[in-house]
Structure formats: C-alpha cells, structure tokens
Amino acid sequence: MVVHVIEFVRNVRLWFAPQQIRQEGSTPDYRFSLANERTFLAWLRTALALIGGGFAVDQFLPDLRWGWRVGLALALLAAGVLCSLRAVNHWVRCERAMRRGEDLPVSRFPAVLSIVVAVVAVAMVVVVLVGWEG
C-alpha cells in the first residue's frame, strides 16, 4: 500500500511534464497511444458516472435519513475522485511502459472498484428497504 502511494506521488510529476515522458525510449505506434487514450477516457467516464451517482443519491432519495444519504453520496463522490486520479496515473504508466518497451503495468484497481461498487449496490438495496420504513 505504502509503496503504491510513493509511486503515485512520483508519477504526479509526470502528469505535468510532457517533455519528461517524450525523452524516454522511442515513440510507440500512434495506434497504441490512441488505444491508451481511449482506455483513459473510459475510466474517466466511469469516474464521471460515479460522481453523477453521488449527486443522484442526494437528489432522488430524499426520504432517506440524513446520515445514510450523505454517507452514500460522499462515498460515491470519493470513489469518482479516486477513479479519475487513478485513470491519469495508469495512463502515464502505460505510456511510459510503451516508450520503454516494457510490459504494461498490471493493476488491482479494477477488482477493488468492482467489489466497492457491488458493496455500495447491496448497501443501496438495504438502505432503500430499511430506510423507507424508518
């Protein structure tokens, strides 16, 4: 976990410094870069959907108790932030790996995110069933 955070912080420099990536290795086939860009955009859409879900919980479940509603909304918003930050980080790592001719980075994030979404979905079901009575 700590190792991940340290690497994440190190990568943050690269987000803002295009010339640093361009100096490394050789330029890959433009199609690979575009595919990487589309993956980045797909993750960004996932992040936007999570953020939209946060707004939707706040807006469309007004009968819920305040704590549950705000908790769920904030959890979804936080997941969206995490997802978008991870999207740009993963994009930078893939871009660098392609330039260096290394293997693409593997990641636990998709599995973690899907488990979190599943847990939130179950929580929503429980909240909707219980919250409406209470």
Partner: peptide
C-alpha cells in the same frame, strides 16, 4: 500524436473539481 500529459491532467482535475463541488453541496 499522443495525448499530452498536461491535457489529461487538466481533464482529470476538472472532474475532481466537480466532485468537490458535489461534496460541498451534499
């Protein structure tokens, strides 16, 4: 050419800012 990292970062920062607005509203 490939997407510039600054461009990608700017897009992500806008997304994060939207989420922060959301947190402030909620």
């Amino acid at each position: 050419g490939a997407l510039a990292p600054r461009h990608a970062t700017a897009t992500v920062l806008l997304t994060v800012a939207l989420a922060v607005c959301g947190a402030a509203l909620v």
